[in-house]
Design a protein around this nucleic acid. Structure first.
Lengths: 347, 347
DNA sequence: GTGAAAGCGCTAACAG
DNA sequence: CTGTTAGCGCTTTCAC
């Protein structure tokens, strides 16, 4: 009763047979190697026409098995539904396509174990040719198995200490410094930083550093309790609890808040609305990452903008270099892009 | 000078040889077929240990070539960096992973040709087992080559007329009706709908229908010019020009605006700010798609919320059904999910 | 200029 | 319960 599957996909063999030539010839045509092997224009044309006629597309699995090259690249980010990452990924997709690569995109959920298993699956199972990684890992040696194999891998957004891997990142310290400085200059004395945990992530560390540098440079009293870690999985509750605590304090009451990323900022903003906290009058507020919300909210939110386009295009550019010319383990590219602080009404 | 690649990946052969057994046995263990073939617990354990010890992972290219099954699914959306789609995709990723599938995610940029070539690449080249498609195509027959092969494919978000393919979508008409009705009930007489082009996309058509239904039901004068098409590639300019025109009119001046999707809404909101248009006093405003911005903007924006979670999980569920039990071309699943109108301050 | 043949790593039919 | 074997579709070496 089922509809019959009439038209199986043609293989290279079908093309060859229907033309009375060998598979070799067809293969050479597919791979633009006719020149190299001195195939005549006429023959090439003949084969090409047949390929078009039969709608032949080479089977990548077979090619992959034979050549060991997949023209796939693995892309792992913490969460593809976070606009910061989805924008980067989109750029990578476009750039990769231009060079015939297809990305396999995965979300690690800030989970080191999941990340490792995704990497293994991409590298060992799917045989991606290279990896672009916004890593959640704590230590570089968890990636040693890649390094040992000299596997093309570029770190983006987050660097890894002593990783010795090419990295495309952003000057988080400078960005955080600028953000904190703004708060200080507008009169804040008690500034908290809400940063996503785990705290060892390089971007978080650098943001903390920038924050502390500003605090110290302007001789504000620094208090360890003003740097709070917000767990990735429970942002809203953590933000609410901490804000409750910090705003209740009699002495040293919070008057400036720096949200370490866009999700934390959103939770803070919800809190402000629910608890009728007036920003910037009662509390000045800035955030890392610039998202659409910040331009339209009331008040508009000052934020550290990251150059997503550039992160995306550089990351593929660097990976491509690795893919084509091999790793230079002694001296991996380290690209650090500037951020831009956008001052709006919240600070 | 280069670091030697010491540790090649082990193959099924290596495992078998180092254990003195056959590849078959190892293969059976990998694929959990030991029960089926009555392999002893002991042997299985022995093989499994070796696999763990050598860090073996089956080569998917080989498996794919042999079995014709890739455990890959293709996912094509107009733009992965649009939060509406990135959220759906994220759900699909999670659900697929639970069943051992990996998504290959692509953006079509609302370009039919690009979409077709992506489909071909996914299906013929990458050999994905199934497809989840938020299609930009005009007519279903462009997908006939898939239907002929009985290829598992589910349409999401947008349906295709006479496609006879399983579809997971949303009741756009009802959503648009509710949105328009709100505008009418709050006193608007001259309501425009800004919809993304191409206008033949089912969601757009349905939204137009819902809009018109409300207009007619409440006996407002309907004017063709009040439905404007905004090209995907030039949203901002188109929105600005049309708003300029419609707001300048002496008679029948615009007093209500319905943005057909989130990107259009953002452009409108920028316009409002730049031109100091007071919403809702001067112009009432609603949008399709609910994004974070709408909850925080001033004023907050009323919007038709789509059940992204459900779209994502249903789409994989339906595809899985196809994958496991085959197509039912006579009677494909058509799942229509309700939308929810969220009234905020803008209307 | 072109073709024959081997083999990438895996699965499954069949044999024992 | 376990092994032998053929072959998926392609690229590449070598031969003519």
């Amino acid at each position: 009763m089922n509809m019959k599957e009439n038209s199986k996909k043609p293989s290279i063999d079908d093309i060859a047979r229907s033309l009375g030539v060998s598979k070799t010839l067809v293969s050479m045509v597919i791979n633009n190697k006719t020149e190299k092997y001195g195939i005549s224009e006429k023959t090439r044309k003949k084969v090409e026409d047949k390929i078009a006629e039969m709608g032949f597309m080479p089977n990548k699995a077979a090619r992959r098995l034979r050549t060991g090259k997949s023209f796939l690249i693995g892309v792992i980010v913490p969460d593809i539904s976070n606009p910061f990452y989805s924008k980067i990924v989109r750029i990578i997709e476009d750039k990769a396509q231009l060079d015939g690569y297809n990305p396999m995109i995965c979300s690690s959920d800030e989970d080191s174990e999941k990340e490792i298993s995704l990497i293994k699956m991409l590298v060992d199972s799917q045989q991606v040719d290279g990896l672009i990684l916004s890593s959640t890992l704590e230590k570089a040696d968890e990636l040693d198995f890649l390094r040992k194999r000299n596997f093309p891998c570029v770190l983006i957004d987050r660097s890894l200490p002593e990783a010795n891997l090419p990295t495309v990142s952003v000057d988080n310290e400078q960005g955080a410094f600028a953000a904190t400085e703004t708060l200080i200059k507008s009169g804040c004395k008690h500034i908290a930083l809400f940063a996503i945990s785990p705290g060892y992530i390089s971007t978080i560390e650098e943001r903390k550093k920038g924050y502390l540098k500003a605090i110290q440079q302007y001789k504000l009293s620094s208090d360890k309790k003003m740097i709070v870690e917000i767990p990735y999985n429970d942002i809203k509750n953590a933000v609410y609890e901490n804000l409750d605590g910090l705003l209740k304090k009699k002495t040293g009451k919070l008057d400036g808040l720096f949200a370490g990323n866009n999700n934390i900022a959103l939770a803070c903003m919800e809190y402000f609305i629910e608890h009728k906290i007036k920003v910037p009058e009662q509390l000045k507020f800035v955030s890392f990452d610039d998202i659409d919300v910040f331009r339209f909210s009331s008040p508009t939110i000052s934020a550290v903008e990251q150059p997503v386009e550039e992160i995306g295009s550089w990351s593929f550019k660097v990976l491509k270099e690795l893919l084509e010319n091999g790793n230079n383990l002694q001296n991996p590219a380290k690209i650090s892009l500037p951020t831009r602080f956008i001052k709006r009404k919240s600070s």
